[in-house]
Computed example of a mutant assay.
Amino acid sequence: MKKHKKIVVFLVIVLLGSVMLRLNVLPVLVDGRSMEPTLYDHDYYLSNRNSLNHLQRFDVVVAYSRQLNENIVKRVIGMPGDKVTYKENKLYINGDYVKEPFLHNSMTNDFTIILKKNQYFLMGDNRMNSTDSRVLGPFQKKDLKSRNGVIVFPAKHFKKLQ
């Protein structure tokens, strides 16, 4: 009887641990090249569901797109109330130039958008191959599902996203 009790306790602990993990972590399989070179097609990473209260510019987020009816992975470029301008491949936030160190030879057409109180402007790092806020429009806070995380597969891509 003692042996069965230990097995039951072990299974309950495993079950509770699995539930807690699922509530806190959003597993993501990257589909496409829109976030290269940060994330590659078929990278698998674990994203933090509970860190959206600390959202910052340039965080990598998982957002639900109503137009595409799926979760997408993008980078936060514009925060609520920002005036986001791209001119000659350079980002300006509220008139100030902001360097994007994660970009490598990426082209962005010129545009300006002013975000409302609860809007976020999201873009992929591979700007020429990304369906993002330039097409889908700004995202609401409720559309954002998780932030940052850790790439766990393939092993050669292992890294923490911040």
Rank of each mutant, 00 (worst) to 15 (best):
V19R: 06
V25I: 11
V28M: 09
D31S: 06
E36N: 11
E36V: 13
Y40P: 14
D41F: 12
D41G: 11
D43W: 08
Y44P: 13
Y45N: 09
S47R: 04
N48C: 12
N50I: 12
L52E: 15
V61H: 03
V61S: 07
A63C: 05
S65A: 05
N69H: 11
N69D: 09
N71H: 09
I72V: 12
I72C: 02
K74N: 02
R75C: 02
V76F: 00
P80M: 12
D82T: 00
V84N: 04
Y86K: 12
Y86H: 08
K87L: 12
L91Y: 03
Y92E: 03
P101Y: 09
P101E: 15
H104P: 11
N105A: 06
S106I: 01
M107H: 11
M107N: 14
D110A: 06
D110S: 04
F111S: 09
F111Q: 06
T112V: 03
I113T: 02
I113Y: 04
Q119E: 14
F121M: 14
N126D: 12
R127W: 01
M128A: 14
N129H: 10
T131V: 05
T131G: 05
R134H: 10
V135N: 11
V135Y: 06
Q140V: 05
Q140H: 15
K142S: 07
S146G: 05
R147G: 09
R147D: 14
R147K: 10
N148R: 03
N148E: 10
G149Y: 02
G149P: 01
I151N: 11
I151F: 13
